Simulated scan of single mutants.
Amino acid sequence: MLISRRHVLAGAIAAPAVISFSRLANAATTLKISHQFPSSSGDEGDFRDRLVRKFAAEVEKRSNGELKFEIYPGSSLMKTNAQFSAMRKGALDMSLYPISYAGGEAPECNIGLMPCLVSSYAQGLAWKTKPVGEEFATYLDGKGIKIITWVWQAGGAASRERPLVTPADAKGMKIRGGSREMDLMLQAAGAAVLNLPSNELYVAMQTGACDAGITSSTSLISFRLEELSKNLATGKGKSYWFMLEPLLMSKTIFDKLPKAQQDLITTVGAEMEPFGLKGAQEDDVKVAEVFSKAGAKVSDLDDAVIEQWRTIARDTAWKDYAGKTALSAKLLKLAEEVQA
């Protein structure tokens, strides 16, 4: 076959277009999101997994496919407690993560599950634009973590035999509280405590290693704890247990993205917050229905009971946390300034 000069020139002219197209075809960045919660399907299932999927779909759509996501529910990519450290190192891109789980390597994070400090969703969500939220976000940024979506959840206590409502009920029980500060309050009430992520609660209660588990309403449902429990103290309306469970991103990964993609991620992340609030509040109601249907006795908390817990929390958890570092003391003081 003869190759004419015209063919050569045509090929040379076309080459940049081919190269350009090839570069565009490979331009997509895929981010991995890991979390401990069960997978969802469509509009059904754990709202935290649905929030992650909704976030991923919206970012991919608005970026015209330049940003794509792989989602790993149920700690299928890596173990729950390893996710925070992995994000700090840039080994994991994103996670929807109970922030108090990071307390071992970043003690100030335990403010995200400080008993009786936050008593309503409005109070918790107000942190974002208040000095406490700005200070906390700056602290996490320095640890290599960015908050993308602020999510708060109320929690309740599921127990195998005896109800766990008042501090007096806790005496002699083996209880999972969810953070060092929760554990300090429970121990002062006479309980033995267990330190484990909520996705391990079912087995702990099934084997008798745990008498009661305190966790978010959504986790109480998703991890099917009604199958093992005769009692539930709900977080509906009032609770001494409010946890910050934000969608987080590795700062190392975030900083490598173009400014337009960074802005898109933070914009869509903020847009997910009403969805997170709605999901949490709906599950506070749903959990009572699920446990009641399974035959459990359901109790709600009132102001008098909350104040009993708060009195203990101030003398134990709050005092211990404030004494850790100067920043801990500052964060606690700033959080107390945010009214319920």
Score class of each variant (00 low, 15 high):
P167W: 02
P167T: 01
P167K: 01
A168W: 02
D169K: 00
D169H: 07
A170L: 07
A170W: 09
A170K: 01
K171T: 00
M173H: 01
M173K: 10
M173C: 06
K174Y: 02
K174G: 01
K174V: 12
K174E: 06
K174Q: 07
K174H: 02
I175Y: 05
I175M: 04
I175T: 04
R176T: 06
R176I: 06
G177T: 14
S179M: 04
R180F: 11
R180T: 14
R180I: 11
E181Y: 15
E181F: 12
M182C: 10
M182N: 09
M182S: 10
M182K: 08
D183W: 09
D183P: 01
D183N: 15
D183F: 11
L184M: 12
L184S: 00
M185K: 10
M185A: 13
M185P: 05
Q187M: 14
A188E: 13
A188N: 13
A189T: 05
A189H: 11
A189M: 12
G190D: 06
A191G: 01
A191E: 04
A192I: 04
V193R: 07
V193N: 06
L194E: 09
L194S: 12
L194W: 03
N195H: 15
N195G: 10
N195C: 11
P197Y: 05
S198E: 13
S198Y: 11
N199M: 14
N199Q: 15
N199S: 11
E200M: 15
L201Y: 15
L201A: 14
L201S: 15
Y202P: 10
V203F: 13
V203M: 14
V203T: 14
V203E: 15
